[in-house]
Simulated scan of single mutants.
Amino acid sequence: MSIIWTIIIGFIAGVIAKFIMPGDNEPKGFILTTILGIIGAFVATFLGRALGWYGPNDGAGFIGAIVGAIVVLAIWGMIAGRRRTTTRL
Rank of each mutant, 00 (worst) to 15 (best):
V67S: 06
T6F: 11
F30L: 15
A41E: 03
M1W: 12
A13H: 01
G52D: 03
R84M: 15
V67T: 05
V43D: 00
R82E: 12
A44D: 02
S2N: 13
I16N: 02
A80L: 07
P22I: 07
A50Q: 13
L73V: 15
P27G: 13
K18Y: 03
A80Y: 05
I75S: 13
E26N: 07
P27N: 07
A80Q: 12
L32S: 14
T33D: 05
I20P: 11
G59Q: 00
L51H: 06
V43M: 11
I12W: 11
G10A: 12
I9M: 12
V43W: 00
S2D: 08
I7F: 11
Y54Q: 01
P56A: 10
Y54R: 04
G68H: 04
L36W: 12
T6M: 12
R84G: 05
L32D: 08
G29W: 09
I20Q: 06
F62P: 10
A65C: 10
I66L: 06
G61M: 06
A17R: 03
N57A: 11
L47T: 10
I16H: 03
V43Y: 04
F30E: 07
I20R: 14
P27S: 07
A13F: 02
I20D: 09
V43S: 05
D24C: 09
I12A: 05
A17S: 11
L51D: 15
V72E: 03
A74N: 15
N57D: 12
G23Q: 14
A44E: 01
T34M: 12
A17P: 02
S2C: 05
T45P: 03
D58L: 00
L51P: 02
G61E: 02
N25I: 05
A44W: 01
W5I: 13
N25M: 09
L32I: 15
G55K: 03
E26F: 12
F11G: 11
A50T: 15
A13D: 04
Y54S: 01
A17W: 03
I9F: 12
I39M: 06
I12Y: 10
K18A: 13
F62T: 07
Y54P: 00
R49F: 07
R49I: 02
V67C: 08
W76V: 15
M21F: 11
S2K: 12
S2R: 14
F46Q: 14
P56D: 13
R88H: 08
I12E: 04
R82Q: 05
I39N: 02
G61Q: 06
K28N: 14
T85A: 08
V71E: 07
A44Y: 00
G52S: 15
R83D: 12
G40M: 05
T85L: 08
A74Q: 09
G55R: 02
T86S: 14
Y54W: 15
A65M: 04
I12V: 12
V72I: 07
I12G: 08
G77H: 06
G40V: 08
I9C: 04
I20M: 13
I7R: 01
I35Q: 04
I39R: 01
G59S: 11
I16P: 01
I79Q: 10
I4C: 05
A41I: 03
E26C: 09
Y54E: 03
L47V: 12
I16T: 09
A41K: 01
G77I: 06
G10I: 03
G77R: 11
I38F: 04
I63N: 09
I75E: 04
D58S: 04
L32N: 14
T87V: 10
I3T: 15
